[in-house]
Design a protein around this nucleic acid. Structure first.
Lengths: 199, 199
DNA sequence: TGACTGACTAATATCATAATCTGGTCACTA
DNA sequence: TAGTGACCAGATTATGATATTAGTCAGTCA
């Protein structure tokens, strides 16, 4: 495992950490595992990160950034905002369904991460996604597909909770209602609520 | 504690169990505590309930029934359905804020109950409240204040998740957005989505 | 006879403590 | 001066001995 990859030490540390965290979870991954995987000495890790938790957060943020990048393309897309909103929820379901590291902290249950660390990682994601939604609403207001008098911050928070619930219920197999029905209804309820009064 | 209350044994058992569960939580309450409090022998409890968990569930269901009764008065009230919906969320916040036994299993965190038992108790509540919402939507459709073509089951599920998130965030003091703003926005988004197209 | 009891048991939880592991440090190296 | 790894304190786990308790059932009355 002591290969000398061309990348910088902190990139190799993150890559090694990500591999370990994905396979074994937060608790069962040791600093020694990470540094061995990155081909550095143990002390070097602490030149780049203040703590194990910071390494984990960096890994989560890198993963999250890949999702946000795809989501941003959607947010800037040509469809009407309510349609984009639905696509965003669908993208999230797909992405989080495939990325256990991200879903672990946001939904619990997977055993990859727990407690304080999971909470902090979840907050980072929540905040990022909420701001994505807010951005989408503001765009909608500018182009007239979202009511102008809506409180975008509150609406982003409400939409986040709503989407989060739908995504979680889709991912946890906890289906009281099939996903497509839930999505359709979500769209009808929220879509109309977003539209200008006489669109 | 061996007082002979006039009520039937199972009523006294539930009353004694409720007092213990509220004070000490599920784990720290013993069957001996309950039966001593109810003034019966230990074996008698098992004539009325198959297990400790069943006793706990009976207590939760009794508590829940008191809430549902108050909620039902609201559901059958004179206001337009979206208004009743908001009142229902507010009532839930108030009630669950005051009833730690109910909120314990639904939101965790309180330490009164954990694990499997909490999950089962939460399911009972979820189901009950969801059906309350469904009832409310059907009434709304009948009196014309809710769109006829809405999928009431899916809408009830979605509304439950949403209301649940709002209530939890209100109770946990985890306010990214102040409650009244969240409620107002929730009302605008969902209220409009519920209304008939040209109401 | 059948509602009721409480001594009993198997299983689980609690506790003390010994052994192990690991996040983080720092004197040292190249 | 970036990098290292032996080292340490505190946390975690393993062990085993003790205590608790959910649930049972043979027996007691009314």
């Amino acid at each position: 495992m002591t290969e000398a990859s061309p990348s910088t030490p902190d990139q190799r540390l993150i890559a090694a950490a990500e591999a370990q965290f994905r396979r074994f979870g937060y608790k069962r991954t040791t600093i020694d595992d990470i540094t061995a995987g990155a081909g550095t000495g143990k002390g070097s890790l602490y030149l780049h990160f203040p703590s194990k938790q910071a390494v984990y957060l960096a890994v989560v943020e890198a993963s999250l950034e890949r999702f946000v990048e795809a989501a941003s393309r959607l947010v800037d897309g040509p469809d009407p905002v309510p349609t984009r909103l639905r696509s965003l929820v669908e993208l999230t379901i797909r992405h989080y369904g495939e990325d256990e590291l991200l879903s672990a902290s946001l939904f619990g249950r997977s055993g990859l991460v727990e407690g304080e660390v999971a909470r902090v990682a979840a907050d980072v994601q929540r905040e990022r996604i909420r701001s994505l939604l807010r951005e989408l609403l503001v765009i909608g207001q500018r182009e007239g597909s979202v009511r102008a008098n809506i409180d975008v911050d509150a609406a982003a928070a409400v939409l986040f909770e709503l989407g989060w619930a739908v995504v979680r219920s889709a991912l946890e197999g906890d289906h009281p209602i099939p996903l497509d029905r839930a999505l359709k209804t979500l769209n009808e309820l929220v879509g109309l609520g977003l539209l200008p009064r006489n669109g």
